[in-house]
Write a protein that binds this DNA or RNA. Structure first.
Length: 437
DNA sequence: TACGCAATAT
DNA sequence: AATATTGCGT
């Protein structure tokens, strides 16, 4: 599998170094020194490209123009890099849809995980303003609309599951596509029965009574947008089994202990609730989930992330954080785009704070200072997941060419690149026919 | 058509 | 392990 990055950089030395480094990590590279070239390449060969890495100050195009242009014609992730450490500019790039902002000089940690940003289907999708965008594990547009609007991407692929059955002969070609293209993301994430969700489930049963507790009624009572009857049915089935198991168990102990007057608690059957970790105590990740939910919207059912997936997300933060930002230890973190606090979070101390529509003073300052960003709150850097959607994607993994990544040394590459550049330059100068100078 | 359940798939 | 899907009898 190949992962191709389109590198746009006007300085040939820099271009060469960056390309070399990317190649050392297994990426394939296509280069362009002008924005117009890059756009041309993109027009011709978008299918072959997985990610765009571009300098912010291109000689033949205004500041954000290339990003804006690419955004219109493609949903490819765009990573920008610059020596410019102006905060407004950085945030501007991110808000306008850059997936990541890297500072020059780029180091290996910057590029090592770039492939993670490209899990989205690299397909041109026009975003229709309001309507059938649904990629929240089948969850409702109402809840998601505030965050989906303006976000290209998954909508075209995630909503297809309803139409299964219409794909017969298409199946062959589609399957081939999937095999050839690991970037394609089609699977709808499974529902995760969080404690909160399960609580609603139990509450519904409690109110409906054990007799009236049928999937349809439960679903109705739970009132969770996007939740399907099948979800409830499946859960209910398992719930009943757990009840039965528990009854059996208590009966046996009653016989053994000669304890006839034992009352069985009908609602305890799940390890989710008998497990002390979850009883009366909210696990840390659930807490974080709730915090997030409170931050972004009054709709509580957004918390579908599992413990596992949240851990993953955090590790992504760690691995993808932008290495240098001024003198302070401030860092910019990508955050979850689907939780309303889209964009990035700034932090002084390692705790990331989020902002977006709900605001963060840092960003608000910039906004209040008249910094003019379009698409505020709709675009954001996207990592492997968010609180609804994680780890369901096949992870991309470019094959590192180097056996030992840790011993990877940039200086070698720089030297090599410079030497190569010298040779090339000499070639150019010696060639009387070249008209590039 | 909805339901319950078991088996099976993912 | 958890959830989704399927098949079949009620």
């Amino acid at each position: 599998m190949s992962f191709r990055i389109l590198v746009v950089e006007s300085d040939p030395t820099c271009l060469r170094i960056v390309s070399k480094m990317l190649q050392a990590f297994g990426y394939e590279v296509t280069t362009a020194t002008r924005a117009t070239d890059a756009l041309h390449i993109l027009r011709e060969k978008e299918d072959e490209i997985n990610l765009i890495l571009t300098e912010t100050h291109l000689p033949d195009m205004d500041q954000y123009k290339i990003l804006e242009t690419v955004r219109v014609m493609s949903s490819l992730p765009i990573v920008v890099f610059s020596a410019d450490n102006d905060v407004s500019a950085m945030i501007g790039w991110l808000y306008k849809g850059a997936a990541l902002y890297l500072m020059k000089p780029i180091i290996k940690n910057d590029v090592k995980n770039l492939w993670q940003l490209a899990y989205r289907k690299k397909k041109r999708t026009i975003v229709s303003s309001a309507g059938s965008n649904s990629f929240h594990a089948g969850f409702s547009e109402e809840n998601a609309s505030s965050v989906t609007a303006g976000m290209p991407s998954l909508s075209s692929t995630m909503g297809q599951s309803d139409q299964m059955g219409k794909r017969k002969e298409l199946e062959v070609t589609e399957k081939d596509d999937e095999d050839n293209d690991n970037l394609t993301v089609l699977k709808k994430p499974k529902l995760v029965w969080t404690n909160e969700l399960h609580n609603r489930f139990l509450e519904a049963i409690r109110i409906l009574g054990i007799d009236g507790a049928h999937p349809k009624k439960i679903l109705q009572h739970m009132n969770v947008p996007g939740l399907k009857k099948e979800n409830v049915s499946s859960h209910l089935q398992k719930y009943r089994l757990s009840l039965k198991r528990k009854q059996d168990a208590t009966q046996k102990t009653m016989i053994r202990d000669r304890h006839p007057s034992m009352t069985s608690n009908l609602q305890g059957g799940f390890s989710q609730f008998t497990n002390p970790q979850f009883f009366n105590t909210v696990s840390q990740s659930e807490y974080r989930n709730n915090v997030q939910n409170n931050l972004c919207s009054p709709v509580s059912m957004h918390s579908l992330g599992s413990v596992h997936s949240l851990t993953q997300v955090n590790s992504n933060h760690d691995s993808m954080l932008i290495p240098s930002y001024g003198q302070q230890s401030k860092q910019l973190y990508p955050t979850y785009p689907n939780c309303s606090h889209t964009g990035i979070g700034t932090t002084d101390d390692g705790n990331f704070s989020s902002f977006g529509q709900k605001g963060n003073h840092n960003v608000e300052e910039h906004l209040n200072q008249g910094t003019n960003f379009s698409n505020v709150g709709t675009h954001g850097p996207i990592l492997l997941g968010n609180s609804q959607q994680q780890l369901q994607f096949p992870l991309l993994q470019p094959q590192p060419l180097l056996e030992k990544e840790d011993e990877f040394d940039i200086t070698d590459i720089v030297t090599e690149a410079r030497n190569e550049l010298l040779v090339m330059t000499k070639k150019f100068l010696d060639d009387p026919n070249n008209d590039l100078w």
